[in-house]
Write a protein that binds this DNA or RNA. Structure first.
Lengths: 195, 195
DNA sequence: CGTCTATTTGAATGTACTCAAAAGCGGTGG
DNA sequence: CCACCGCTTTTGAGTACATTCAAATAGACG
């Protein structure tokens, strides 16, 4: 295995270290995917068998409501995992869509291959459990901020959390994440710039 | 072990079945707790070493913001687990408070004992992983509803999800869960009753 | 019955929304 | 290099909805 490729695989499960044999197992489970900006890797109402590790680029998950509005649940940049996990956990149909909002390179991991990794490399199960705990915590924080902060404060919290997001996402994406209109976000930004 | 007590322990890890020896291990890890309505089992800024299984009664977790407002994150009734999981996972200080809003009986399980159970009865780790996945999914749903539904629709979704909640929680608790004032909730309920 | 708590109602205010239009920005082709 | 086009953001005016504060009712309980 070329070192370059090996380093890439290692970065997927970053704090862990592996034997040569384990790396081969991992390699057999990960499929590299390149995406063009604007393309979708998941649309609602598909059964979800896979999750994705984002190596480069930027993606988002969003929910399309009955009135046709998009609501961004999450952005994912380098070193994040992304899927419709609610559907993934139960091998159900997705309610979310996943879109590349920048050209991106990903690694795909199917549920079946994940189980295989759990069997062969148990520490990977712990790795994913911790990822899940982090994701859970960030959802909890999001709910609490939603309940306790004004739109302006939520925007500030957002750009603090994702300091380099500006290059990747449009303001209307941020608005759809915050649950406000682009117009409202524009006015909030105006206020902030003049103070 | 009396059958009654045994059945109680079994209900904590419901779909699983255990040997006599495993039941003893479980028993040694669970501590039964009785709570009076109004009492707190966690206040913010404490290190969180435990989670609780709710056998009877009703509890809620809430966040107290700088302005002194309470924001309810969750209610927990029979067969739910409750804690400040964000703090629990990392053995950090809580930002949440947990209050009994009805007389309640709980089982306490510490992080250390949970690890012990994982070692001795591996299927319990899977059990908790699935609980976590469910909790994650319900947070995701909450965020999406927050983004896509009106206050009235969120209220309807809430009473649909917790059909028997009325006996347990005050309307001002529901309002603090929905992120609206008691007055607004009152007006929403009035509209609904007249239509 | 009286007291305490919870809910409802009213009026004024504020914040975000919709709809429509203008301005800004980036890339392409003449 | 500039003009044009499509996309994004900003601005404006009017409206809708939730908020605040204050007061009135309704319920629960001794």
């Amino acid at each position: 295995m070329y070192d370059l490729e090996k380093n890439t695989l290692l970065s997927v499960f970053d704090p862990l270290s592996f034997s040569e044999k384990e790396l081969q197992t991992i390699q057999s489970c990960l499929e590299k995917i390149s995406l063009k900006k604007g393309s979708m890797i998941l649309t609602s109402n598909e059964v979800v068998y896979e999750q994705y590790y984002v190596q480069t680029g930027c993606l988002r998950t969003f929910y399309l409501d009955k009135s046709g509005k998009e609501h961004t649940l999450q952005f994912a940049i380098n070193d994040w995992w992304i899927s419709d996990y609610t559907a993934f956990f139960n091998t159900q149909k997705s309610i979310l869509n996943i879109e590349a909002i920048q050209d991106a390179t990903l690694f795909k991991l199917t549920r079946a291959d994940q189980e295989k990794l759990y069997q062969e490399i148990p520490k990977i199960e712990t790795f994913f459990r911790k990822k899940m705990e982090k994701a859970f915590s960030s959802f909890q924080k999001r709910i609490l901020e939603n309940l306790s902060l004004t739109a302006k404060e939520q925007y500030l919290s957002f750009i603090f959390k994702y300091p380099n997001i500006e290059q990747n996402v449009k303001n209307y994406h941020i608005a759809s994440y915050l649950g406000i209109t682009t117009e409202s976000l524009s006015r909030i930004r105006k206020e902030l710039s003049s103070s």
